[in-house]
Design a protein around this nucleic acid. Structure first.
Ligand code: ZN
Ligand code: ZN
Ligand code: ZN
Ligand code: ZN
Lengths: 132, 132
DNA sequence: GTAAATTTGTTATGTTATAACGTCAAGGAA
DNA sequence: TTCCTTGACGTTATAACATAACAAATTTAC
């Protein structure tokens, strides 16, 4: 994996925006934030996101058509991650312990399928928002 | 739950198209199939889909931006369903046994969140396609 | 150093989803 | 009945998300 400083410029820019925000952002929200930089067109953002995702630095949230900077170093080694999303404050937790990978393994076996990728996204209201 | 014959016309039309296909379809694919009927505009399709989904007759696959007719009577009673999708033949299996709902329950507890909805989608290559 | 291959930028376009507004029909109160 | 409210539906327009196609620049292979 490339070290941060070695990332091409567009990847650094996109990743920095996502990390600063800390919440899910659509590609077009990212593009808005980069107004004035060398990143001018949607495709530049999508291409950067694609690479960052393949490096494990960014995740795509399918149920939101959005992207978020990885916030859990362990998810890269485990490979399967579940995302828990608060619908009120947009906080996202990554869960990538054994129970998640075991669940996916068993699901694939049960369905007689060779898994390629998985998307597990749980929406709800987090504790902090519940008590607000 | 309304019986099939009692469904409003647009809902019947949309559901019939999805059931005939048996695979995931985007709203616009459904619209194409309904050319010549009273369903002429995207919003008619989306409104029908929204109702069919709330009745449990149709599911939305977040990772495909697509919709599929429910093919498993048990998923309505359990409430939580995992979808296993073959990327080659587009066959979709619904899994809604106890292991799935238990996994979601435990995930919600672990993340200290009150679950509202969940999306579990596993992509892969099914047995039939693997041997082809 | 030159040609081929890859990456990047730009424009245009395709795909998915919703906002805004007008019409009509059903149902209830006066 | 007649008026009013309410909700469902159709239509047009537009917003939001994503990729195709091509040109220019850069990197890589020899
Ligand atoms: Zn992560
Ligand atoms: Zn919250
Ligand atoms: Zn179902
Ligand atoms: Zn298959």
């Amino acid at each position: 994996m490339k070290r941060r400083a070695e990332l091409p410029n567009n990847l650094q820019l996109v990743l920095a925006v996502l990390e600063k925000k800390g919440h899910p952002m659509s590609a077009y929200m990212i593009l808005d934030q980069l107004h004035g930089s060398s990143v001018r067109a949607p495709l530049q953002v999508y291409r950067a996101l694609e690479k960052l995702i393949s490096m494990g630095q960014v995740h795509r949230l399918e149920s939101l058509n959005s992207f978020i900077a990885c916030n859990d170093t362990s998810c890269a080694t485990v490979g399967v991650t579940a995302f828990v999303i608060c619908e009120k404050c947009e906080q996202v937790q990554e869960v990538s312990d054994n129970s998640v990978s075991l669940f996916i393994t068993e699901l694939a076996e049960k369905a007689k399928i060779t898994a390629v990728k998985s998307s597990i996204e749980l929406h709800g209201i987090c504790g902090a928002c519940e008590n607000a």
